[in-house]
């Protein structure tokens, strides 16, 4: 089938970007969205033009490296009644009609500067984890794995939150460019486990503080983040974060020393 593309081209972080039109023939429905871009790039390269730069790695929906805004939706999963949970690499061209026009833009947010074309710098998400998204246990210092039993329900909830792939779609979708869903997923994951308790109070303060300092927007409970999340991290996680954050105000061990 034939597809018309409008793709964001931006040579580097300093220059202005713009949408450029391409038309691509020979697209098959079995191709993934990124394979369609590969095909475009092969043709551009043959013509001696610069191929479109985009990020991808595992192409099986788990590494979180890929991600572009497709027709106004991060990762492009849009069902009729409900959003379809997908990463860009797991979206297939059969979701598009022959002759349709697809607009492709990078994640846009203050904390995600564009590096080139569809590639943005998401290292701010690493900074948020760095601020406290871990359990401090040195290698070799762990007790036996069966030393603590963990309630299955809580363990499952921890797991649901831990499935976050850090792709940044939540930030791209949020009208405020907020990373609250990302941060709250880690907070919830660790808050559900007994191992996560000693640092729980300090963790939430540090991570939220870091997130604000990095230039992410604030949460206004719009819910776009959870709607596009490829892993279905629920909006409740943000409330969990808020509860922990409020509780930390009243706890002595919540003070940074």
């Amino acid at each position: 089938m034939k597809i018309n593309l409008r793709i964001w081209r931006q040579h580097n972080g300093k220059e202005q970007g713009r949408l450029v039109q391409y038309s691509l023939d020979g697209v098959s429905g079995d191709m993934s969205f990124l394979e369609m871009l590969d095909l475009l790039n092969e043709q551009l390269t043959e013509k001696g033009e610069d191929p479109v730069a985009f990020d991808s790695d595992c192409r099986e929906g788990i590494c979180g490296q890929c991600g572009v805004v497709i027709n106004g939706v991060p990762h492009g999963g849009q069902g009729v009644a409900q959003p379809v949970r997908t990463t860009t690499c797991q979206l297939h061209m059969r979701s598009f009609a022959d002759g349709s026009t697809i607009t492709i833009e990078p994640w846009k947010a203050a904390a995600f500067p564009v590096l080139r074309d569809l590639i943005v710098d998401r290292s701010a998400l690493d900074r948020v984890i760095e601020a406290g998204g871990y359990i401090s246990v040195n290698t070799g210092a762990a007790p036996d794995a069966h030393a603590v039993q963990i309630n299955k329900k809580r363990s499952d909830r921890a797991f649901d939150a831990a499935t976050c792939i850090g792709c940044g779609a939540c930030v791209a979708a949020c009208p405020n460019g907020s990373a609250m869903l990302f941060t709250s997923a880690k907070i919830t994951h660790l808050a559900m486990l007994p191992q996560g308790q000693p640092e729980r109070v300090l963790r939430v303060k540090r991570m939220v503080g870091e997130q604000d300092a990095l230039g992410f927007g604030g949460c206004t409970n719009i819910g776009e983040c959870a709607a596009v999340c490829p892993k279905g991290i629920p909006l409740e996680s943000i409330s969990q974060l808020n509860r922990d954050l409020i509780a930390s105000l009243f706890k002595h061990d919540g003070k940074d020393d």
Binding site: V69, N71, G72, V73, E105, G177, G215, G217, G218, V228
Partner: peptide, 17 residues
């Protein structure tokens, strides 16, 4: 929030889900 989303003129199309 205004700063967080990167100021005015963000996406050419934005769909709400």
């Amino acid at each position: 929030d205004y700063k967080g989303k990167g100021g005015r003129g963000r996406y050419s199309i934005k769909k709400s889900l």
